[in-house]
């Protein structure tokens, strides 16, 4: 690839160079290595595991690193029914994640409480967490989860980075 603009750099001699903005570069790094925090609570966790296995391969998107430590993860995938008993634990783990962090609500139960309209089930994890992408399904197919991951990647790519940087 030859550079066309006048920057006094000969790529044939020095190698390929891409000129871009810091925002775009950082967003590219982030979206292609979204490490999930799998909050696998119920049956959707099985489909999450299936998405991580070889047939559907979430590793293609850089997200095979399912760190069960919130300190080391970027996106929390809430896969399963969030009961009221579990709700505060989920919130606590979300609080322990470092910025920037996103949430995928996987499945009907995490999105809206699903088929469990009852006294014991939180009607949607968005009552306690800010959700970025919802995945419909009971359980959603692994391809649906990967589609959600791709949408989240699109959202991450569009997010401004330097202007929203939190300075201590």
């Amino acid at each position: 690839m030859q550079t066309r603009s006048e920057i006094g750099y000969n790529s044939k001699v020095e190698g390929d160079v891409v000129v871009t903005r810091v925002d775009a570069a950082i967003s590219w790094f982030r979206k292609n290595s979204l490490w999930p925090m799998p909050m696998g609570l119920a049956c959707c966790a099985i489909e999450l595991m299936a998405a991580g296995a070889s047939r559907f391969d979430i590793a293609r998107f850089g997200a095979e690193v399912m760190r069960f430590s919130p300190r080391q993860s970027d996106v929390m995938i809430v896969a399963g029914t969030v009961t009221y008993k579990m709700a505060l634990a989920v919130k606590r783990i979300y609080d322990q994640m470092a910025e920037p962090k996103w949430v995928i609500a996987m499945g009907a139960c995490a999105s809206t409480g699903g088929m469990y309209r009852s006294y014991a089930v939180l009607q949607g994890v968005d009552n306690i967490l800010p959700v970025d992408v919802y995945v419909a399904g009971c359980p959603p197919r692994p391809e649906a989860l990967l589609d959600a991951l791709m949408r989240l990647q699109g959202k991450v790519a569009r997010e401004p980075v330097l202007s929203t940087l939190k300075v201590a």
Binding site: Y84, K85, A87, L88, G113, R117, S118, Y119, A120, V121, Q123
Partner: peptide, 28 residues
């Protein structure tokens, strides 16, 4: 509450225990 009593609604009743759990009524 005791949820499986017949006078307890399926949707539940609001309750609050700070630091432990909260409940609210499910939209039917």
């Amino acid at each position: 509450y005791f949820p499986l009593r017949k006078d307890f609604p399926l949707a539940g009743r609001p309750s609050e225990m700070p630091e432990v759990a909260f409940t609210s009524t499910a939209p039917m």
